[in-house]
Amino acid sequence: MPTDPTRRAAFITGLRDLADFIEANPGIPVPRQSTAITYFPEQATDAEMCAEVDRIAGLCGARIDPAPLPYGHYMITLPFGPLRYEIAAILADARARYGALSSYHGCVTPDSDPAHAA
């Protein structure tokens, strides 16, 4: 699905403004590790989301990255030096696993007694 032209223009302007800011301020740090900008298709069926990733892959001349497939991530990665532009569909099974795992958030409190830290 194409991005709204106004949103697209604002995103591109923001990237350029960030690059100009970093270049004009050599004293500020940049990330040591690779940094990703990720686009997620709208949540739909797995087949529909994969079709959208495939469509974008065709536009970019990219291939599906097999490494994250076992984790339920159907994606392409476009490297730009230390930056990556990713298009990722998180498949239903992976979303369900994450939902189950995060359902415990706030229910378990680790023991903060320093005597048990060793």
Rank of each mutant, 00 (worst) to 15 (best):
L59G: 13
L69W: 12
A96L: 15
D20G: 06
T3R: 12
T13S: 15
R97P: 02
E48Q: 15
A92K: 08
P70N: 06
C107M: 14
G58A: 03
D93R: 14
F11C: 07
A44L: 11
S102G: 02
A115R: 13
I28C: 00
S112N: 08
I22R: 14
I12D: 11
T35V: 14
I56C: 03
Q43G: 09
S102C: 07
A47D: 14
S102T: 13
L78V: 12
T45S: 15
T38L: 04
L83R: 11
H105W: 07
T45D: 11
H105N: 09
P79L: 03
Y39R: 10
E42S: 11
T38W: 05
A36M: 09
A36W: 10
A88N: 12
D93C: 09
Y74L: 00
C50E: 10
G27A: 08
Y74F: 04
F11T: 08
S102V: 10
P70C: 05
I64K: 03
A94L: 07
P79R: 10
P114W: 03
P70I: 03
T3Y: 11
E52H: 13
I22E: 07
A24V: 10
L78S: 06
L78D: 01
A51G: 05
I76D: 00
V30E: 06
P70T: 04
R32M: 08
R7W: 13
A9N: 13
P41T: 03
P110G: 03
G72I: 00
G72D: 02
M75E: 04
S112W: 06
L83M: 13
L59E: 14
M1F: 12
